[in-house]
Amino acid sequence: MSEDAKILLTKIGEDTSLRYAINLITSAALACQKRKGKVVEMEDISRVYELFYDVKRSTQYLMEYQSQYMFSEVAGEEGDEDEANAMVS
């Protein structure tokens, strides 16, 4: 792994979690193999970071686009609340 890739991975690990950073190492190694590289570079880390969201970015994405998901309007309507609860059960 190149020094630049290690620095980027360290920064990502500090901002997210150690578990997420470790999973990125494995994914970045696979991305490196796919491009037929010998050393994991920053571009590999960046690519897998864009593909796999951490909990914080995933939550932010879901909050931002929640109105586009099925049943998003059901929770907001009082009359359909019992029906929505029945669907979940």
Rank of each mutant, 00 (worst) to 15 (best):
M1Y: 09
M1G: 13
E3Q: 10
E3K: 12
E3P: 07
D4V: 08
I7K: 15
I7E: 15
I7L: 14
L9N: 04
T10Y: 11
T10M: 10
K11S: 09
K11Q: 15
I12V: 14
G13E: 06
D15A: 14
T16Q: 04
T16K: 04
S17Q: 05
R19T: 08
R19H: 06
Y20G: 07
A21E: 04
A21S: 13
I22Y: 07
I22E: 11
N23Q: 12
N23H: 07
L24N: 07
L24W: 03
T26W: 02
S27I: 03
A29V: 12
A29P: 00
A31M: 10
A31Q: 12
C32L: 02
C32H: 01
Q33K: 13
Q33P: 00
K36D: 14
K36I: 08
K38S: 12
V40K: 02
V40A: 02
M42R: 09
M42Y: 00
M42E: 15
E43G: 03
D44M: 04
I45V: 15
I45R: 01
S46A: 11
R47P: 00
R47Y: 15
Y49S: 11
E50Q: 13
F52Q: 00
F52P: 00
F52M: 10
F52W: 02
Y53R: 09
Y53F: 13
Y53V: 01
K56V: 10
S58G: 12
S58E: 11
Q60T: 12
Q60N: 09
M63R: 13
M63L: 15
E64P: 00
E64W: 00
Y65N: 15
Q66V: 11
Q68Y: 10
Y69N: 01
Y69I: 14
Y69F: 15
Y69V: 15
M70C: 04
M70W: 00
M70I: 11
F71N: 12
S72A: 10
S72N: 14
S72G: 03
S72W: 05
E73W: 03
V74L: 15
G76T: 05
G76Y: 01
G76F: 01
E78F: 08
G79R: 12
E81A: 09
D82M: 05
D82R: 05
E83S: 08
E83G: 14
A84V: 02
A86Q: 07
V88N: 03
V88H: 05
S89D: 11
S89F: 11
S89N: 11
